[in-house]
Design a protein around this nucleic acid. Structure first.
Lengths: 181, 181
DNA sequence: TCCTCACATGTTCTTAGGTACATGTACTTG
DNA sequence: CAAGTACATGTACCTAAGAACATGTGAGGA
């Protein structure tokens, strides 16, 4: 269901083709909600059938730009206002952490190094985005303000995860009955 | 694939039945990796067929306790050591935040209040868990140490999300061209 | 003894998600 | 003008996930 409302939400910003949406999903929403083009085209056709979107224009190479309809807008708004948020984290990094005790200490250290590096880089990338937004590079529409909020979540979450991975490295793997040197 | 290794990881701690595993998935891993019993029983049968687990004992009411095999251990360890981590966040809260601009300011404030409350409560719950572990209530096996690391991630992530939701409330929704009172 | 609840394992069906396959067009550059 | 790249949309197939349905047992209390 989330893909559906993701598409409607993006189309609420302005008309776009399946190709456009696929790229935006990969670039902007990719780390939050992955979606490949087959799924997107299929869902667009379904949405059009249900009247939540409609073809705005047809361009070269069979390009079809969709526009959101009134019903579509009502549907996204209803989703945002009235449906319960699914709060599951579904993070593989976390799932794996339950099983760290199965790893060789060396492998675990290497793993946590990589994790910390990845998360720190992601945090930095989002931070750059945030700064660019704050410099006014993306303008100041309500849409970009929402994007700014989402980016802030990315910055904070990835920073937190990087710090967590660093912290995890300091946890001794075996029993703490420290053999006094 | 993650469910498969989640099950193997849990079975590496000791023999358990599908029923046991379903409960543990709900209680412990539920917020990180949801799995209902039909999926679990099916996957257990597949794992048994492939020789990664085997029936350890049969109990009352058709209960079948599974034990992980050597190959099974090798498989989880291989997954942990050699496969790339999928870092997608897949958080609906974040997806929704991209579309906050579609919400009425009042609805958005209410939404963020609820989000902040949920995340703060979750953080507190995990914190309690962490404290209990640190008091030694779960013993001090390698497994519980890994659990402690996972719990720490929960504490930090939920705290971060709660703070983010609070921060988001301070972002003005419309253009910042402040009409000087 | 009967009833209820927790235990215990499954099948079936539908939807979601992902990979691979398939096709064709417009533009740009050598 | 040939070749490559980016644009553009789809189908087919397979696996994952989730909801609903289905069945039966053992233990404990009323």
């Amino acid at each position: 269901m989330s893909l559906r409302y993701g598409l409607l939400g993006l189309l609420a910003e302005g008309a776009a083709s399946g190709y456009d949406l696929a790229r935006r999903f990969q670039e902007v929403l990719g780390s939050v909600w992955p979606a490949q083009h087959p799924k997107i085209y299929a869902e667009l056709n379904r949405l059009a059938q249900e009247g939540l979107i409609e073809v705005e224009s047809e361009g070269p190479r069979g390009r079809k730009a969709y526009r959101i309809t009134e019903e579509g807008l009502v549907a996204v708004r209803g989703w945002l206002r009235d449906t319960e948020v699914d709060h599951t984290l579904r993070m593989q990094s976390l799932l794996r952490s339950f099983f760290f005790w199965l790893m060789e200490p060396d492998d675990l250290r290497r793993h946590l190094d990589e994790e910390a590096r990845f998360f720190a880089e992601a945090a930095a990338r989002y931070e750059e985005y945030a700064k660019a937004k704050d410099r006014g590079e993306f303008g100041d529409s309500p849409q970009t303000r929402s994007m700014r909020i989402a980016i802030e979540a990315g910055v904070r979450l990835y920073r937190t995860l990087a710090e967590w991975a660093e912290w995890a490295k300091t946890v001794p793997p075996n029993s703490s009955t420290t053999t006094h040197s």
